[in-house]
């Protein structure tokens, strides 16, 4: 079974092998990811921890096809996606991946409801009414049901981040990638956000990868993946 690829294992939604990524130009070019191997299963939450600058965000962007790998392979739902064109990667992001960043990145000109509808509008599989219903339901689930028409920038930081989570879940992605989603939030809001992510993963059978510095959050996850200098720290 030497040639078995990660894609052949059932339940594996996201996998990578010998993933490498360099950043910077010329003399400043440095290797950020060093031959990273990873297999993530549906219904599980993974925490990536590690010191600042070890490459956590870079790994997240590369796995999420937001950034392009320099070497190695990535599989999503058993399909090899490394080497895909920009257009193909964008379609996969739309259908299969949801991002939550440290900063919420809501579009301030749009209401919370409309922000949540943006990925659905791009996907274009639902009618406008169905999109509204689904967006309202998602906002309900993140606890913002009755404030959906308010503009995105008229909310607290915690509320905005919850809208961003609802937006990341808009197209029912298989994979949710969160980069320090509670980094800008106080303790209370952090707990709310993390509980929310955990509940989603269980209910929707999603794979969730959370980058975090917060040990409490890491403990709440199913697995913790400590990272150091562009590699996962091998377990003894």
């Amino acid at each position: 079974m030497a040639d078995s690829t990660p894609s052949s294992f059932p339940g594996v939604t996201l996998a990578c092998e010998k993933l490498e990524r360099f950043l910077g130009e010329g003399e400043n070019r440095i290797q950020i990811l060093r031959q990273v191997n990873l297999e993530l299963r549906s219904g599980c939450i993974y925490a990536v921890t590690g010191p600042s600058g070890c490459g956590k965000s870079t790994l997240l962007y590369t796995l999420g096809l937001l950034d392009r790998e320099d070497a190695g392979e990535i599989w999503i739902n058993g399909t090899k996606v490394s080497g895909a064109t920009d257009g193909e990667r964008t379609i996969i992001r739309n259908r299969n991946i949801g991002f939550v960043f440290q900063f919420h990145f809501l579009l301030p000109e749009f209401s919370a409801l409309e922000n949540v509808m943006l990925p659905m509008m791009k996907l274009g599989e639902l009618t406008h009414e169905a999109m509204q219903i689904r967006a309202n339901k998602l906002l309900d689930e993140v606890g913002l049901g009755e404030k959906s028409s308010r503009l995105a920038n008229q909310r607290s930081g915690g509320e905005q981040q919850r809208v961003a989570i609802a937006r990341a879940l808009a197209n029912q992605p298989d994979i949710l990638l969160a980069d320090e989603p509670t980094g800008n939030l106080d303790q209370n809001n952090s707990t709310v956000v993390i509980d929310l992510l955990c509940r989603m993963a269980r209910e929707q059978d999603q794979t969730i990868l959370v980058v975090t510095h917060n040990p409490a959050i890491a403990d709440a996850c199913d697995y913790t993946l400590p990272m150091l200098d562009g590699q996962f720290v091998p377990r003894d």
């Binding site: 937001l66 257009g87 949801g98 990145f105 579009l107 996907l123």
Partner: peptide, 12 residues
Amino acid sequence: EIAILRSMGYQR
């Protein structure tokens, strides 16, 4: 906003 739109599936 452009970056987040791209991340959620909006093409170039």
